[in-house]
Write a protein that binds this DNA or RNA. Structure first.
Lengths: 215, 215
DNA sequence: CCTTTCTTATGATCCGGGTCATAGGTGTAT
DNA sequence: ATACACCTATGACCCGGATCATAAGAAAGG
């Protein structure tokens, strides 16, 4: 289970709205309030709507029978989620949960397709989003399939650093994730992440400020 | 290195052409001859063209520094490849090699975008392809990150079985892959695949006919 | 304030799958 | 027929990360 800290700026650059509010309104999308911990859909559910976060944060994840979680991704304001199942025509392969209280746009598939048809630029942006997600998955897959924990975490941190907004002047960024969350993203155990992070500090691959990771 | 057996019917249903020849001709795409083993692009190359297999088979893969291969996918006639980098705007994260002699369509990005703009149905089909590829990656990622070899191979075989053309009447299909190739697809070692396949036979999860796997 | 619940942390143990060595089987090319 | 390159197969060994136990720090909520 995730620790409820604020993860709001993360995994994809902010202020990159796929679909603007005005278009949602034109196509009569619904803006739904979600409470913290609310499940939006579960593994196996059929995909009928397009979803985009307006406020808050959504996590997609799967649990294996032993209860271990693997995080597929975090989605922030302006970002859509669940499109693969919608456009690929299959049931959701994972769960979606609101990490915190917020608002989410829902647009039924037929209206969504019409919207794409009438807005080529958005359709192209959607392609871009899907492609970047494939890139992320390929990267993680490569790591998980053949590298040791140090390499895996290094790659994850590098990726995060590139996505996080950089404060001018400082060359290191603070990683806004707990070790448990990094474990869930890389398929490692929390103890392994803890030990590896310590080792990486000794090797000067990162700095620790209290428990916070500077990379 | 891959063993040059015929893998022609595999991983995605056949006869599903994304873009028909007539459209390629209309947009003045080039039909390029490729020889067996030819590299079409390599990790790090910028993505400038859209590719679709006309004849033969293309493999995308990465090699880690120790030389171990991880297969990202096989692409058969009618299937496109390399679109993520093209549409996501990043360099190729992996290599593409012709597994056998064949022909490949190449269409520069600007013309490709124009084609999509004028053909909404193809744009939607492209989305579907990308989404299914995401589905496959998520599946493999889930397996690799938290399951044992038996579970991983079972999932891979289940997936393959669903994609392979089924002969009516028979409930088992023959898996057209070597153990090395299955290892490259699941991130396992060939010895582990061999041992696990044998164990699965004892557990009646599959049948062996000589060395061929019936699932 | 205190309690709860999540965090980070560290040591001990264990075992599954990687690694290495060796060998026989199978298909293709010459 | 022979050679070669890749395949399947099996045993021995080992090590890295999972697992389990335990505990102290930090944050959230009443």
């Amino acid at each position: 289970m995730a620790y409820p800290i604020d993860l709001s700026n993360f995994l994809v650059k902010r202020n990159k709205k796929l679909i603007p509010i005005q278009l949602f309104e034109q196509f009569k999308a619904r803006l739904v309030n979600v409470r913290k911990g609310q499940i939006l859909f579960e593994e196996g559910d059929p995909a009928r709507d397009f979803y985009q976060v307006e406020e808050g944060q959504v996590k997609m994840y799967i649990l294996n029978p032993e209860g271990q979680e693997f995080t597929q991704g975090f989605f922030n304001p302006g970002e859509s989620f669940g499109e693969p199942a919608l456009l690929g025509g299959f049931n959701y392969p994972s769960n979606a949960m609101a990490v915190q209280k917020g608002k989410v746009w829902r647009l039924p598939k037929p209206e969504f397709l019409q919207l794409l048809k009438e807005n080529f630029d958005i359709h192209i942006k959607l392609n871009e989003v899907l492609c970047k997600r494939l890139q992320y998955k390929s990267m993680i897959l490569t790591e998980v399939s053949s590298y040791d924990p140090g390499h895996r975490l290094n790659t994850l941190l590098k990726y995060l650093k590139a996505k996080l907004p950089k404060k001018t002047g400082e060359e290191k960024v603070m990683i806004p994730f707990t070790r448990q969350q990094m474990a869930d993203m890389t398929g490692l155990r929390v103890e392994t992440v803890i030990r590896t992070i310590k080792k990486m500090e000794k090797e000067n691959k990162l700095k620790l400020q209290g428990h916070k990771i500077l990379f």
